[in-house]
């Protein structure tokens, strides 16, 4: 499968390496849901820069990953949406809730740090 998933502290970093088929997108959701439990990850970053198209199916799958991961105790941030893909998504009028996005990996981990700190406080 053309996604590399790395562990970085409390976070999982999933880097998509090439355009994905629908089944590969579904497979990615299974893997992430599974890995969040195994590594007790608090956050996921998904780098989608290699995706040539983010259409209604991929958007729905990303939303599903976000919601599923949240039920497993992890927050998700999407990074690397190509400018042309961003324009297509807006013109398509895809509903992006509850996707959180950041421009790059650093911004994504900073956002995750903030989000998961908030969770820790809520948990006390």
């Amino acid at each position: 499968m053309s996604v590399a998933i790395l562990r970085q502290g409390d976070y999982l970093i999933a880097s998509i390496q090439s355009d994905l088929s629908d089944s590969e997108v579904i497979e990615l959701r299974h893997q992430l849901t599974e890995l969040v439990g195994r590594h007790r990850s608090r956050g996921i970053v998904i780098d989608v820069a290699a995706l040539e198209v983010i259409d209604s199916f991929v958007t729905r799958a990303l939303r599903s990953i976000v919601l599923t991961a949240r039920l497993r105790g992890a927050e998700t941030v999407i990074v690397g949406i190509h400018p042309d893909v961003a324009i297509a998504m807006v013109q398509f009028r895809l509903n992006l809730e509850p996707l959180r996005v950041a421009l790059d990996l650093d911004a994504a981990t900073a956002l995750l740090d903030r989000l998961t700190q908030g969770d820790a406080r809520d948990g006390r």
């Binding site: 983010i54 042309d84 893909v85 297509a88 398509f92």
Partner: peptide, 11 residues
């Protein structure tokens, strides 16, 4: 961004 718009519609 036309090539991307076309590819998305085709998808």
């Amino acid at each position: 961004p036309d090539p991307t718009l076309i590819a998305t519609a085709i998808s």
